[in-house]
Write a protein that binds this DNA or RNA. Structure first.
Lengths: 134, 134
DNA sequence: ACGTAAAATGTTATATTATAACATTACAAT
DNA sequence: ATTGTAATGTTATAATATAACATTTTACGT
């Protein structure tokens, strides 16, 4: 029983690689243009790789930006739920972890008689660096 | 000094009206198709109305679904930040209010030396009705 | 009331993001 | 070896959103 990340196919590895080496989230078509030299020619090949990577938790989608980011947490438990700090100035993204968010949201949902399954949280503001400059 | 909602233009009123009378979030092109009889002919007219309505807080966008929902809260303070409970079964949406979320997120951001400005939160699961059925 | 600046409109074209459909290939599990 | 599942390659198209520009309406200070 190997780690899911060890079983990646060529296309999946190619896409994951470019995301892991990016300092910021990337859009699907940016990924496509950047890796056409590696044999990926169509959007669908990128989207399919992304779908798989998201499914196994190696990549998360940032919904409000239509962009994708590699997860830096070994064995990230955020296969479904995600929480990000997004800098409005430099577009850098930090992922929040810890399941205190999970328990907090469960309670909030409970108050509304709602059965919590997962969440997406995007917090916008200024990152450490940009705070200083502004 | 009238309420912003009293100053709406014809297109803005038309778009807001259809959203307020919908039991669920609507997509931009669904809105377009539904109101072509009222003189709105192009996507841009819908998107411009939506932009304005979002700006004044009468409409919120649900990022993960590319859809739009009218805010039911009189004088909603969520001009920028939004928090939703989204039912995965019936697609119904409930907006969470109260600034306890604001203070909680501010603290979470603070821990990462991040200056909180606003947020989008989408909680997925089963609403009251669908919980019973499943 | 008039002039004017800002906002909204109308319209055509196009950019961006994502999926459908279908034929083929790789590959792991019996 | 066989077979079922997943992944791939490819073309076409759907769905979502904005650019550019000419025109009209509106708000509002004088």
């Amino acid at each position: 029983m190997a780690l899911a990340s060890e079983n990646l196919t060529k296309n999946q590895k190619t896409v994951l690689d470019i995301l892991e080496n990016s300092s910021e989230p990337l859009k699907a078509y940016t990924i496509l243009f950047d890796i056409q030299k590696k044999g990926i020619k169509s959007p669908l090949q990128v989207y399919r790789a992304l779908d798989k990577l998201i499914e196994i938790g190696k990549v998360h989608k940032i919904e409000s930006r239509n962009s994708y980011v590699a997860c830096k947490h070994e064995g990230c438990n955020a296969k479904t739920s995600t929480s990000f700090l997004i800098c409005e100035n430099c577009d850098s993204v930090t992922e929040l972890t810890g399941n205190n968010l999970f328990s907090y949201f469960s309670k909030q949902a409970e108050k509304n008689n709602f059965n919590y399954k997962k969440h997406n949280l995007e917090i916008f503001g200024l990152c450490k660096n940009c705070k200083l400059k502004n």
